[in-house]
Design a protein around this nucleic acid. Structure first.
Lengths: 251, 251
DNA sequence: CGTGAATTTGACTGACATCAACTCAGGTGG
DNA sequence: CCACCTGAGTTGATGTCAGTCAAATTCACG
């Protein structure tokens, strides 16, 4: 389940890149190492303006024509599909530095919807321009392929989770994943806010809100975490990891 | 669940491409329209030799260093992950014309294993060479991105399946998907062989072999299909689709 | 402070898993 | 050629994890 941290550069380099990228300081497309200053300028040119997305607003919807990818600058999103019965299935939660919309490339239509879980900000990246740019920038090309591939592996992990994990394993895996992503971004791995509702979490994990509520309580009783509404503090990350792995029986 | 047919060219064009591509007549990388003859030659050059993979043999294993993608020329594969407890989770079944190994690009290590379900044949495509080639061939670049994106959407469909479908819906979806893929390849959509064991099917769908067996029987009794061992004949595809969608209650 | 939505808690239910016995197909060797 | 063997698949009885339903409680926001 552990997702590789999207950002693996030494802090100093990140700062440099941040400073360089005029419109969009955070997103991953700025991160491949070895971009020279000329390359950076080119990248800056194609990145569209920043766009604010208010909490609850939909950035794109299933079936919308595809024209751009979106790099999350700030905030959190959920992506979800709608099944034939009209019910949602949450397919992922995305945060700053992650890229939205890659599923739309194959058919030129968005295959899922993306909704902001809080007031957020994205950079629009017109895909046609990006693809032209990739031709001139092998480093960026490489990086882009890695990002698409990473989305594939992320989804495989979720398949593993949904396919053969118990409820408590799923929930532990979810928490461990969040922790590692926040850590990779320089935030605390052990204290963070759940940006999504219990309903979204349950939906994502193939469980009901009631189950999520019970699991939170169980983990609290086991001394694994503290919760107050959406404020969460992880007290025993190693044990959570053990539960994810199935090593720890988890009462 | 419906996966877009990987091949959408008019038959005549496919035939032309087949004729041109010396080492590998079938795989999708040959399919982007608009490749001129020079491009085709270049593509031919980087495609490694065909490689036979006997039934039960593993093409690559989790953790293997990544160097090549594999285009399936002939036969069927399953891809699977191993969880912490050592159990398998089947993440997909692949057939002729599909590409294996795209998940490995992000970390330079294979993230799943691939096993031949029958005697098969693949073309090895060294990724470094391919990436160089992509720079000179925008059409191929586009196509490659579409293929990666398609893998993302495929996995999203599986997440939907595992996340909020009942057992009978899952199984119906599985059959409908197979039918559409065979149809796209010019085979019968209603009569085909299950190349994978009940165990693999169950594992893929998050169910047990016993459940698969019971579902086969149930569908047989409902007049939806005929089964004899692995030989399968679909009698009522529309109704199977309705069950997938959740429209049909499915006794 | 009040209202509706979100969350929690408890009792009950059901879908699918588990366990176990059995059948069948296909391959092997005498 | 057939008896045997092995692994795959089927069928039935029972168990259980998480879902469903319902009510209580807390939270968010005007």
């Amino acid at each position: 389940m552990d997702q590789l941290p999207a950002i693996t550069l030494p802090g100093a380099t990140i700062e440099i890149l941040k400073a360089r990228c005029a419109t969009c300081s955070m997103h991953q497309l700025c991160l491949p190492m070895g971009l020279d200053m000329g390359d950076m300028d080119k990248l800056d040119k194609i990145i569209g303006r920043r766009r604010r997305v208010a909490k609850g607003d939909v950035l794109f919807r299933i079936g919308d024509p595809f024209s751009s990818l979106y790099a999350i600058r700030l905030g959190h999103f959920k992506t979800y599909q709608i099944n034939a019965g009209g019910e949602e299935q949450v397919t992922g939660f995305q945060m700053g530095g992650e890229l939205l919309g890659m599923d739309a490339i194959s058919t030129d239509k968005h295959y899922c919807s993306a909704m902001a879980l809080e007031d957020s900000e994205v950079c629009e990246i017109p895909f046609a321009s990006l693809e032209q740019l990739l031709v001139d920038m092998p480093t960026l090309l490489r990086h882009f392929h890695r990002m698409m591939s990473q989305e594939i592996t992320r989804e495989q992990s979720v398949m593993l989770l949904l396919g053969n994990m118990q409820a408590s394993q799923r929930f532990a895996a979810f928490l461990v994943n969040l922790a590692s992503r926040y850590e990779a971004r320089g935030y605390s791995a052990t204290a963070f806010q759940l940006r999504m509702s219990r309903e979204d979490i349950g939906n994502y994990l193939g469980l009901t809100i009631e189950s999520i509520s019970r699991l939170l309580n169980k983990f609290k009783k086991l001394g694994l975490l503290e919760v107050a509404n959406r404020e969460l503090r992880v007290l025993d990350l190693p044990r959570l990891k053990a539960i994810t792995a199935g090593t720890e029986p988890c009462g």
